[in-house]
């Protein structure tokens, strides 16, 4: 069953015009993006910094209002959903900076139970607190934590509280916006395993946004690669990691350092050369053309459409069949 669908989604930010009195301009971040996500599945979204991953995540939840296209939640257009504020219980988000995501003046019990005041207004204060303590326990924090404040927590504990707040309303989808990139490696594994375990127990879908390919490989069912606001490749996890098709995906894979220092030393670097094109003034061709080792004039003139290149696999490159 399709839980979430985006159709030709475009998102941009308004920025001031070039001159003092010129009109505001739109800085486009995400272009013409379509995706579907089934209940209980995990979609990994990868891409370099500034490619629009986080903006996409927020636009899917309508925390940022998209400038084009539409988002369908269980087949219903997000703009027409009645009482969207209360329905937000079904779609939650966890953040990159776990400490900044918690109000420093509130106790953990209050942070976690606050959404319930909107989602389930009939709940008494006592019941809401009990639910919050239960959610904290589910993420591995004992009841003793309920009356603590965020500054008394470590990063990993704070991220657990963020997850507890997300699951307290029993969501069907959680957008994970780089949830582990601010954490130590050992804590990263704990948080990832916690998310996978909660997904198994509660059956929610995840959109896992990250630039860490290894983490995405661990948690995702499907992988979507973004470059400058556009999807360049989408594939099931195993197929993607076995053989990434798009040159940009291949470059991302190559950029992952080898853990063994002796092998890392001998590795032939394929660092990307070339400039990122200006977002305000994008070139007509492929978004990756300026840095792609295989780029031809065709790439610089015509943008390749995202198309089916193998069963369940899509990519946006002129040359994939030629490979």
């Amino acid at each position: 069953m399709t839980l979430l669908e985006a159709r030709n989604l475009g998102v941009g930010y308004r920025i001031p015009g070039p001159g003092l009195f010129s009109a505001a301009r739109m800085l486009p971040i995400v272009h013409d993006l379509s995706l579907t996500l089934d209940a209980g599945r995990t979609l990994g979204v990868v891409g370099e910094s500034g490619c629009g991953k986080s903006t996409l995540g927020r636009a899917l939840l309508r925390l940022i209002v998209p400038s084009e296209g539409q988002v369908l939640w269980q087949g219903e257009d997000m703009t027409t959903i009645q009482n969207l504020r209360r329905r937000r219980a079904e779609m939650q988000i966890i953040f990159q900076d776990p400490v900044a995501a918690l109000d420093p003046r509130m106790t953990l019990a209050r942070i976690v139970s606050r959404p319930l005041a909107t989602f389930e207004p009939n709940l008494s204060r006592k019941e809401a607190r009990a639910r919050a303590v239960e959610a904290l326990r589910q993420v591995g924090l004992s009841a003793d934590f309920a009356d603590r404040f965020p500054h008394e927590l470590s990063g990993g504990q704070a991220q657990r509280v963020g997850i507890a707040r997300a699951i307290v309303g029993r969501p069907k989808l959680i957008i994970c916006d780089e949830p582990v990139s601010a954490l130590d490696v050992s804590i990263q594994a704990q948080v990832i395993n916690l998310l996978m375990e909660l997904q198994e127990k509660m059956g929610m879908a995840l959109v896992f946004i990250s630039h860490n390919l290894a983490v995405v490989r661990h948690i995702s069912h499907e992988v979507m690669v973004m470059c400058l606001g556009r999807v360049v490749e989408r594939a099931p996890r195993n197929e993607f990691y076995a053989r990434p098709l798009h040159p940009y995906s291949q470059a991302l894979m190559d950029a992952v350092p080898e853990p063994d220092p002796r092998r890392e030393k001998g590795r032939v670097g394929t660092a990307l050369a070339g400039e990122l094109p200006s977002v305000l003034n994008p070139p007509p061709g492929c978004v990756f053309a300026s840095r792609c080792p295989k780029a031809t004039d065709l790439c610089r003139q015509t943008r390749p459409e995202l198309r089916e290149v193998a069963p369940n696999r899509q990519a946006a490159c002129h040359f994939i069949e030629a490979q």
Binding site: L61, L63, L84, R88, I93, A100, L102, T118, F119
Partner: peptide
């Protein structure tokens, strides 16, 4: 611009409540 404000929005809080419950206490 802090993330807990975004979290409050994702938690369905209205702007009025965000100002009163998050912004004002943190300016205290």
């Amino acid at each position: 611009r802090r993330e807990f404000i975004e979290a409050a929005r994702a938690g369905g809080m209205t702007n009025t409540r965000i100002v009163l419950e998050h912004i004002v206490p943190n300016c205290m």
